[in-house]
Design a protein around this nucleic acid. Sequence first.
DNA 1: GCGCCGCTATACATATCCGCATGGATAGCC
DNA 2: GGCTATCCATGCGGATATGTATAGCGGCGC
Lengths: 306, 306
Amino acid sequence: MDSRGPDWDLYRSLLAVIETGSLSGAARRLGLAQPTVGRHIEALEASLGGLSLFTRSPGGLNPTEAALALKPHAEAMSAAAAALVRTAAGGADPERGVIRISASEIVGSEVLPAILAEFHREHPGVALELSPSNAVEDLLRRDVDIAVRMTPPTQAALTAKRIGSVRLQFYAHRSYLQARGEPRDLEDLAANHSLIGYDRVIPSIRTLDEIMGRTGLTIHRELFAYRTDSDLAQLAALRAGVGICACQPVIAARDPNLVPILNGQFQFELEMWVAMHEDLKASRRMRLMFDHLVAGLAEYVKESAR
Amino acid sequence: MDSRGPDWDLYRSLLAVIETGSLSGAARRLGLAQPTVGRHIEALEASLGGLSLFTRSPGGLNPTEAALALKPHAEAMSAAAAALVRTAAGGADPERGVIRISASEIVGSEVLPAILAEFHREHPGVALELSPSNAVEDLLRRDVDIAVRMTPPTQAALTAKRIGSVRLQFYAHRSYLQARGEPRDLEDLAANHSLIGYDRVIPSIRTLDEIMGRTGLTIHRELFAYRTDSDLAQLAALRAGVGICACQPVIAARDPNLVPILNGQFQFELEMWVAMHEDLKASRRMRLMFDHLVAGLAEYVKESAR
DNA sequence: GCGCCGCTATACATATCCGCATGGATAGCC
DNA sequence: GGCTATCCATGCGGATATGTATAGCGGCGC
């Protein structure tokens, strides 16, 4: 029932060596001595049936194909270990510990801060970590505890709650409209105006593409005059008057110089979800944050629907 | 960048103690001495900020709420470690090592053996493990390397390939038909015949339920005269003439005494998928098996479509 | 009530692993 | 060309963790 493999510590050293590229670097990161890490790798190679994991060179250790195949698994262990420590921090006390949250750049910087600030006032002992990213696998790999997503998380083993729909519509800065005029319709928009959009389209934005596709616009890089994959950079460009960009009404309303284009037609709807790994339901602190996010975002969505 | 937590070995001991319920049991499983495991737990509790993980008793150690919250994370580490060892087995040599495959009971025992036998003839050095189960989370948790599924795996971080549709229709054994006659239609079937079906409905069977729901049949336990959650037991019952049961044509055709009911009407279609964690694409052996399964199952589906 | 069997906790000898110090090798730079 | 800054490999003393042995405690069956 066991036939247990190598010590798990060896995997940690393996990962560190692959990532740092040298025994010395791994030793520094792990707080160990270089010979120790070297012996770990040696022991791991022996444990794994004489498998050769690195080609030693004076400049460092070069991972073999076999070692690279093992790396993702070691990363999974590392993520799980980190999640375990986060869960353990503060113990069963919901007023202490760490929570790590992932959200899109926009939500992470424009929507969450207010909501998280409120949570932090109520629970000052809980440390918060925010990871702005669009990667979906975060939750499965346990890189984060809770995620706010704009796509329905169809994953098993996930506790997910739908918040509602967030509108998205075209906005432009007054200064831009003064210089370029206001587009009459979609055709005019596409032909004679400067759109702000994506550079290399990110997978998780696909829903947006579909929606825009339905409106008759074909999405391709050349459609956009100002291209960046960062949502935040797009928002900044919109605020600077570079061009026209899709934006959430509540966020746009914060700048009185941003005005809706095309009479607010061509609204897109994005679903907003909060998701958490089921395993974390065992932690009172995580449940607290989950519920707080659901409530806070529901408020935001309600405001957005007005 | 690091602030590394406790030694990963401690997590392994933690998991073993939770699962066995005692230091001694964990020590036996891990091949360590009981005091060693005790010290591990002690060290872990200290590392985690004086967190209390167990209530010691003469009969064993009782995990606290905090320890139970950590368990899933430790399990994730364990699964990842096991997957790493499987990947490492045989090294980069695609002709050696281990592959662990998950499939439904039916597919695992009626369809895969022939396909896997062929693979095994070509690659006799590769050890194969088959885990018949309907749990979907296997791949994410890395409990298995490759899965054959009858539901579309909508998960990110998964390499999935759709094989095609597998028909499912009602069959009965000749002896049953002699005794009970042949049902004229669905109503007759539901009212006057013995159906073989599920006991406590398993989540992953839901697709089947939906399909059957479309046909007008309401699915509830009482509909079935012979109830078991094991697909294999259902098939065995069908072969023994217990009653009428949905079955794949290719499988039914192997027993000349099984005949289609209702003129082959009311066919259901199930999609067949092969899925693998993206991380495993780095392993040549896994890719080989993935491709072999795709080819072999495509052949099976083609045969089934005739 | 007695003995047996499971468990944990403690004490002590030992084997193991770790860190330190050193040597050798390569690459970049003045 | 020599200097320096990396890196890895090796040898050795010491700290650390492990295993063995034992004591103590509680439950269960006869």
